[in-house]
Simulated assay, not measured.
Amino acid sequence: LSAVKDLPAISADVRALICPHAGYVYSGQTAAYAYKLVQGRPYETVIIIGTSHQYALDGASIYLKGGYETPLGVVAVDEELAARVSRASGFSYVAEAHAKEHSVEVQVPFIQRALPGAKIVPIVMGYPTRRNVYSLASGIAEATGDKKVLIVASTDLSHYLSKVDANSLDAKTISLVRNINADTLITKCLNGENIMCGGGGVAAALIALKKAGQPRVEVLRYSDSSEASGDEGHVVGYLAAAVTVGQPAAEFSLSAEEKKELLRLARQAVQTYVAEKKVIDYKTEDPNLLAERGAFVTLKKKGELRGCIGFIEPVASLYETVIQTAIYAATEDNRFIPVRPEELGDLEVEVSVLTPLKKIDNP
């Protein structure tokens, strides 16, 4: 903690940290950047979300009673809050999930030093299915209420790639985190992509905080294991980040230019794929096009339907969804034969973007 330099000035309440959990010689200095930022702040409890490395767990396990002992002493579990999270999420205690799990344990000494008065709620996350992640996120949001709670999502990034490949992949993962693309993180982790071992916990933290307002992620430090080992052939990536929450996001809307860009993108995607069998490469910094949204692309020819495919729920960023659904509308709508190159000039393209789903009280 004493070696941390040049932290950004963050005046807003930090509601969550993302911290690595490798051996201290490898990732300890990076984790220290996160804990230094919150050192001495008046948190009552720290919810630690680790990931199950040793035990096949479907769901999550919540440590309900007792405490965690380290060479610095015993940290008590906030038994009342742990019970509330358990009831609200539907997850209970599975002893085997905690028995040999380091991803929770490695955070505890940092909490003892940085937040010596805080209690803890240790949670081990199992398979990061959408149901599991959203259940845990909803349970945490419901149980914490106005209590002064800090969430720590414990995760490393990519594992055992070369330094060059790891740094490149980790930059993309960090971009997903900064843009609060929780559903994309879940999908990639479920698909076994080598992006982060604790992606379910990170996604759960982001989703839980979305219920309080608009999360904002501040990257504090990125490093990899070559800093300690000197081995650049096989590295593990480490991220320290802080999450604050602002006012609830404004109602989603697209500008006229953004609408034109999505129509252009859909048309280009169809033309390129039908004519060349290639998926277009597209980059953008527009936050609305990077946001996760459901969308449909409809193709018409001389006023008649020629194809329509879409996703009601978000599966990727808006621009990626439009590219994908445009290609599917042209080639995968089983009501029609695939669009032929000679038809491209006659196609009309429509893009329908769905606003986020909202829970209603009385269906």
Rank of each mutant, 00 (worst) to 15 (best):
A204Y: 02
K301F: 02
F296Y: 07
L209S: 13
V243E: 10
N181C: 09
E218V: 14
V177D: 03
L265W: 02
I186A: 10
G237L: 11
A240L: 11
A212G: 08
G200M: 10
A295F: 00
Y160C: 05
L263C: 11
S162P: 01
A171H: 02
H159Q: 05
H234K: 05
L262C: 12
I186E: 06
L157R: 10
S158T: 13
K301L: 09
P287Y: 00
A249L: 08
Y160V: 02
F296N: 07
F252W: 01
G294L: 06
N194D: 13
L161D: 08
V236T: 13
Q247P: 00
N179P: 03
V270P: 06
E261K: 12
K163P: 04
S255Q: 08
L190W: 00
D224C: 08
V177K: 02
A256M: 13
N288Y: 01
E258L: 13
A291P: 05
E276I: 08
E258T: 09
T298F: 04
Y273M: 11
V274S: 05
K283V: 14
L161A: 09
I280E: 13
K260A: 15
L262T: 07
N288F: 03
E257V: 13
G294H: 01
R264N: 15
A249M: 06
Y160G: 04
S229A: 11
G294M: 04
E292G: 07
S162Q: 03
E276F: 07
L220Y: 02
A266G: 05
K172C: 02
F296M: 13
Y273G: 10
P215E: 01
K260D: 15
S229H: 01
R178F: 02
D231T: 06
G200V: 08
K260L: 14
V243I: 15
K210M: 15
A208H: 03
V279A: 14
V202F: 04
K277N: 15
N191K: 13
H234L: 12
V270G: 12
K163F: 09
D224R: 03
N288C: 14
E232C: 10
E218L: 08
V236M: 10
D231H: 00
S223I: 06
L176I: 07
L209M: 12
V177E: 01
K211C: 11
D224Q: 04
E193H: 05
G246R: 04
D281N: 14
C189Q: 07
V177W: 01
L169E: 07
R267M: 12
Q214M: 11
A208V: 13
Q271D: 15
D183P: 00
L263T: 07
